[in-house]
C-alpha cells in the first residue's frame, strides 16, 4: 500500500475566495470481499480504501467514508475555496489502517 500510485491536481493559482476543483485518483484494486478465488473457492477478503480526507493547511476541508461498491482505481473531485495560499493534503486510508498521502500547493493571488 505504501507504494500505491496517486495523482492529485489543483489549480496552480486561484483568486481569493474563488471556488476551485480538486481532483484525486489512486491506483487500488478495491477488493469488495464478495469475490471467490476461482481455484480454491475461498472468499477473497475485503480490501478497500474506506476513508478519504483532504486537509488544507492542517484543517480538514473534505471527508468521506467509502464502501465496497466503489470502483477500482477510484477518482474523486470536490470543490473548495481558499482565502490564503497553502497545501492541500489528500489522505487515503485502507482496511489495514495504512494511510497514503499526496499533496499539492495552491497559490492564492
Amino acid at each position: 500500500m505504501a507504494k500505491a500510485k496517486t495523482r492529485v491536481k489543483v489549480p496552480k493559482s486561484v483568486k481569493k475566495g474563488e471556488v476551485f476543483e480538486a481532483k484525486a485518483l489512486i491506483k487500488h484494486k478495491m477488493e469488495t470481499g464478495q469475490r471467490k478465488d476461482r481455484k480454491t473457492g475461498e472468499k477473497v477478503p475485503r480490501f478497500i480504501i474506506n476513508k478519504f480526507t483532504a486537509e488544507y493547511n492542517g484543517k480538514q476541508v473534505f471527508a468521506s467514508d467509502w464502501h465496497p461498491a466503489i470502483a477500482a482505481n477510484p477518482f474523486i473531485s470536490f470543490h473548495a475555496k481558499a482565502s490564503e495560499s497553502g497545501t492541500m493534503v489528500f489522505k487515503w486510508t485502507d482496511d489495514k489502517g495504512k494511510t497514503v498521502e499526496a499533496s499539492a500547493k495552491v497559490n492564492v493571488a
Binding site: K23, A72, F75
Partner: peptide, 17 residues
C-alpha cells in the same frame, strides 16, 4: 468524458508505470 480527460482516465496510471 473519462477517456478524454487525461487526469480522470485511470489508464494513464499504466502510462506512467
Amino acid at each position: 468524458r473519462i477517456q478524454v480527460d487525461d487526469f480522470e482516465n485511470p489508464a494513464m496510471i499504466w502510462v506512467d508505470d
